[in-house]
Nucleic acid binder design. Structure first.
Lengths: 349, 349
DNA sequence: TTGAAAGCGCTAACAA
DNA sequence: TTGTTAGCGCTTTCAA
């Protein structure tokens, strides 16, 4: 089905480069992959040939010749909420899609216990070329990540970052911006209400992502919608039962409650409290992370909008970024940027 | 940096399959790739061996052995608005990222002139393995696409679909849903306003995507926010000057205009009219497609929200889907689904 | 410090 | 209808 086509100049191969530079294939390979045992002059000649010929490596061929799968490990929370569960499912999908180029293992750890996470990182078998981990900011965790990086194991943080560490990439959203987005939507949706209190529930402000969302939300509410009173945040540890109690207390104490922002998980509890009091569609409720539960609540107008990070994208992006890093390929920042998605009933995927 | 690792059972190769089935490598290859010249019994034996060994093809090796680049062509509008211009830029990026597996050409055609598009498709050189085209619904275009498909050239539609044709995939958003999303946001943002007229400007309702968005928008407004009057749609052909005149007329005729929905491009004109009359932040204006212009207007609160389709994602997705189709690889629907993105000032990428 | 040569898993001529 | 074989572009011993 394919004619001759205009004969495009055949793509330069490593062999062409070697010939052009007057060296052997092996030497050219050594030079280009930064392996030792090449004199600086030789290296320079080879690099000149590369630019002259416009050589670009053929990743598939390299992969084939190497004849060894890369080994990645994903460190995910042991006690998964629905978001983390779906993330894990997507990591599994990615694992089968990526084989045999890379073999992905999943290990569970209580990532919110810094020592547990640090131990998992410190005792990471050397067989792994790279690790993706849901991280927390903690000196020991940072040190463990830095040690891995130092020994040549690449690490990316996933969903939750350890920004001061030597992880070379963070796969996740900008949480302060997510909080500001929630604030703007709250203000806009409340356009009609003259004033009133707004409740805020979080998992724990000790979690960096929750704290950052809280900060962003307050920032927008304070500067742009000062006529509303943002109530002190209630911490429910992403637990439906505790969130239910918090929401019930909030509704009881504030009969004029106009808005509710849940920074974390455990939305079922809040839905229950809202329904009990018959104020389900009266309060503008903004939640995070699209799940079976939040989707349902969105469809029946109990949740006004869900701010989401795409777990599938995060799983694939982490794997892709590690693969690129391990094989020296470039990464496309545009493709790897995790967006802050806003979902209404109408644009659900 | 990599230890021994637990010795995972070596991945089965085609050679293993051939041995297991008692045939040669070539026969196994023929059977698996559906090439002719294999008896049904032999084929069955080979397939049995495949399942027994859990064989999965090694795409990189196949690519290398084939030693021929796939040739794709993208048919894009000749007279590009800023969205189409950015789409084209992303297609170029994708082209360099995909080489040498696939070579991507770009051809310009007035895709909104059905005959011009049909002629471009009908005269498509046979050298191309696949084509991605911004399509329109028209019998001659459909026939041209069907002919391509019949001769084995794979085609995907991009941004604008030809749903009745034999294109095997559409890369783009669900436009009725995008319109409904605009409607819901309009209703929500207008929560405060008791009532009032809402203006609607489109490029042309002859364009399927514009018509569909219009339909979705009206659907939501009529059923959920009937207290607002949606004015008859004005067609400005995505032209800033015409849109400016339309917007000015709208503002003059309706001093109480509360909302404005621009379905297509040409937002500069609307911004100008809004500023002239000093009603820039007073009207809730919803626009489509994130560009330098809409981003600026979003940041200064003139546009309330932008509904976007990610051009970079669309370009990459089209290429990826064609690549998968041509090489018999599976596609990941989740990864290829183009989302309806909602942007506020706060979650801009 | 360099080079020669043997593959990696698959495809495609060509031969039988 | 089936088999043999020469690569694809690169990596990696092993020898010089």
């Amino acid at each position: 089905m394919n004619g001759e086509g205009p004969d495009l100049p055949r793509r330069a191969t490593l062999e062409d480069v070697a010939r052009e530079a007057g060296v052997s294939l092996a030497t050219a390979d050594r030079a280009l992959n930064g392996r030792p045992g090449v004199r600086a002059v030789t290296r320079a000649r080879i690099e000149a040939a590369v630019t002259r010929l416009g050589y670009r490596a053929h990743p598939a061929a390299a992969l084939l010749a190497r004849n060894r799968s890369l080994r990645f490990v994903f460190l995910l929370p042991a006690n998964a909420n629905s978001f983390m569960a779906s993330l894990e499912a997507y990591v599994r999908d990615t694992a089968v899609a990526l084989a045999p180029e890379a073999l992905i293992d999943i290990r569970h750890v209580d990532v919110f216990d810094p020592s547990a996470l640090a131990i998992a990182l410190e005792t990471m078998p050397a067989q792994y070329d790279a690790v993706a981990t849901v991280a927390v900011e903690h000196p020991r965790v940072r040190a463990a990540i830095d040690d891995l990086a130092a020994r040549g194991t690449h690490v990316v943080t996933l969903v939750s970052d350890a920004p001061t560490s030597q992880r070379f990439h963070y796969v996740g959203i900008d949480n302060p911006a997510a909080g500001r987005t929630a604030g703007s939507l709250m203000g806009r949706f409340l356009g009609g209400a003259a004033e009133g209190p707004i409740g805020v529930i979080a998992g724990s402000l000790a979690l960096r992502d929750h704290a950052e969302r809280h900060f962003g939300f307050n920032q927008v509410m304070a500067t742009e919608y000062p006529r509303f009173t943002v109530l002190p945040v209630l911490e429910g540890h992403d637990d439906p039962a505790r969130n239910r109690a918090h929401a019930a207390a909030l509704l009881a104490a504030h009969p004029d409650l106009v808005g509710l922002y849940n920074i974390g998980a455990g939305n079922e509890g809040i839905a229950a409290a809202l329904k009990e009091t018959g104020r389900a569609q009266k309060v503008v409720w903004i939640a995070h992370e699209l799940s079976a539960e939040t989707r349902r609540l969105l469809l029946c107008d109990v949740i006004a909008t869900v701010i989401d990070q795409n777990a599938g994208h995060e799983a694939r992006s982490a794997a892709r970024v590690l693969l690129a890093r391990c094989s020296g390929a470039p990464i496309n920042p545009d493709q790897e940027r995790i967006r802050i998605d806003i979902f209404l009933r109408d644009n659900l995927p």
